[in-house]
């Protein structure tokens, strides 16, 4: 691990130390530690059951760990602080959108929940930015998967979060929607937001991030800056990890 990944670094926006989570006899996380600076984009690769979603749920305050600590943007993620929740956004394969409401009603609802000033204006702006202006009065139920994911990104970034968590965001997307999501993530990264993404897709994951990790059996087996790795050797390493 290089200096940047040192869990004791004080410049980090995300500081995770010895995070453990047990579900009865099953150890989902067994001591994960890492640090991220503002603007970092970490992609976590790992097979099903590696504990990636559990890690995201703990970092976003949805789940309590068995032990360890996680500080996100100066707030303890384990306390379920509402100040922390106003600084993070989460995008997953589940859109968190109400299918019977229109796109505008969905974003208006979330804007009100987040206590944003002028929620109508913010919701309209976000829908325009997602390219859904002409379909804003359509119920989300009739949207394509790609459109729903664009709206889900608009929902997750409505409150301008400094840290974004992406849990398998490419699941179920076709090529066009995948490219659209990649572009959006690129913009968010350029915008100096810190991103943590979990994915199985090596090409998508490696393309955008500046740090990569391989997680398996609740542990980070590999964590390195993208500049220090060779794509082919990483793919070999990942395949070997999965076969273990």
């Amino acid at each position: 691990m290089n200096e940047q990944n040192n869990p004791t670094s004080s410049h980090s926006i995300i500081q995770v130390q010895e995070l453990r989570k047990d579900f009865g006899y099953l150890q989902a996380l067994s001591g994960i530690s890492f640090n991220l600076n503002k603007g970092d984009f970490l992609t976590i690769f790992g097979p099903n059951g590696a504990g990636k979603t559990t890690l995201i749920k703990i970092l976003t305050g949805l789940m309590r760990p068995t032990s360890g600590s996680a500080i996100i943007d100066g707030f303890d993620a384990l306390e379920g602080n509402s100040m922390l929740r106003s600084r993070i956004g989460v995008i997953s394969h589940a859109t968190c959108l109400y299918p019977d409401l229109t796109a505008l009603e969905n974003l208006l609802f979330y804007a009100k929940l987040y206590g944003l000033d002028d929620p109508e204006e913010r919701a309209s702006e976000s829908i325009s930015a997602a390219g859904l202006q002409l379909r804003r009065h359509d119920p989300v139920r009739i949207y394509s998967r790609g459109m729903q994911q664009r709206l889900a990104i608009a929902r997750a970034t409505l409150h301008d979060p400094s840290v974004l968590f992406l849990d398998e965001p490419f699941t179920g997307l076709d090529l066009t929607a995948t490219n659209g999501l990649k572009n959006k993530l690129h913009d968010l990264h350029t915008d100096k937001r810190t991103l943590i993404m979990t994915t199985h897709d090596i090409s998508c994951g490696l393309e955008m991030c500046d740090k990569v990790a391989i997680q398996n059996k609740g542990k980070f087996l590999f964590l390195e800056s993208i500049n220090r790795i060779d794509r082919e050797s990483f793919e070999t390493l990942y395949t070997e990890t999965l076969e273990k």
């Binding site: 929740r85 859109t95 968190c96 109400y98 979330y110 929940l113």
Partner: peptide
């Protein structure tokens, strides 16, 4: 659509 998660994250 896991809307409860959306509520809990707010």
């Amino acid at each position: 659509n896991d809307c409860l998660q959306g509520l809990l994250l707010a």
